[in-house]
């Protein structure tokens, strides 16, 4: 795996709100019956995270489980662990209708961190990011500018953003431009 490189290649845009490449992360799209006991067990076992409710993301260190739709999860594991994880899912769900696919390389992942992070992201998405409406542990799939993205907050001032690999540069530049343009003093005051 020595020659694997993340799409953003470690890019950082420093500032009061910093945008940073989050590097390579193992990601598995898992489609299936989310109420299935075996499915829940293998997900929690692989990630160490609890099983998320609708619209939630749970995490355990770098690992996590993102609720993507009523029949889809995105499992986050370390980049090198994907192969084994897929095998384990295959074993655990053998005979159960499901689809598990490695999408680690199909994504770009970055963080947006700083006191005004909510305002920076709110420049780009129609989602309500007011603290009363969106908090740590919730996940939204929506748009950032003109592309699809998913994001959640790992703490009160940090967003984790996932987008498609081919538009990772666009998404990074868009976030960096929004951060550089300065504060709006709206949600950060809320």
């Amino acid at each position: 795996m020595s020659n694997a490189v993340s799409v953003l290649g470690g890019k950082v845009a420093e500032g009061p709100v910093a945008v940073r490449d989050a590097g390579l992360r193992g990601m598995i799209t898992l489609r299936g019956d989310l109420s299935d006991q075996k499915l829940q067990e293998v997900c929690t076992k692989l990630t160490g995270a609890t099983f998320p409710a609708k619209g939630q993301v749970t995490s355990a260190g770098e690992n996590g489980i993102c609720w993507m739709s009523p029949d889809e999860l995105l499992l986050l594991v370390s980049y090198g662990a994907v192969g084994e994880a897929l095998e384990e899912i295959g074993k655990a769900l053998s005979g159960t209708h499901h689809l598990a696919a490695n999408v680690s390389d199909a994504r770009g992942m970055m963080t947006v961190a700083g006191a005004d992070a909510r305002d920076v992201v709110a420049k780009l998405t129609p989602v309500d990011l007011h603290p009363d409406s969106f908090g740590v542990g919730e996940l939204r799939r929506t748009r950032l500018g003109q592309v699809a993205a998913a994001f959640w907050m790992s703490d009160e001032t940090t967003f984790n953003v996932i987008c498609f690999r081919s538009v990772a540069q666009y998404t990074f530049d868009l976030l960096a431009t929004s951060a550089l343009a300065g504060p709006v003093d709206y949600l950060s005051q809320a």
């Binding site: 420049k123 500018g145 003109q146 081919s166 538009v167 540069q169 666009y170 868009l174 431009t177």
Partner: peptide
């Protein structure tokens, strides 16, 4: 237009 100008005018999809 907002931020959608120059390099951000529209997303350019790039292969690896």
């Amino acid at each position: 237009a907002g931020a959608a100008k120059d390099d951000l005018f529209q997303p350019i999809r790039k292969t690896p």
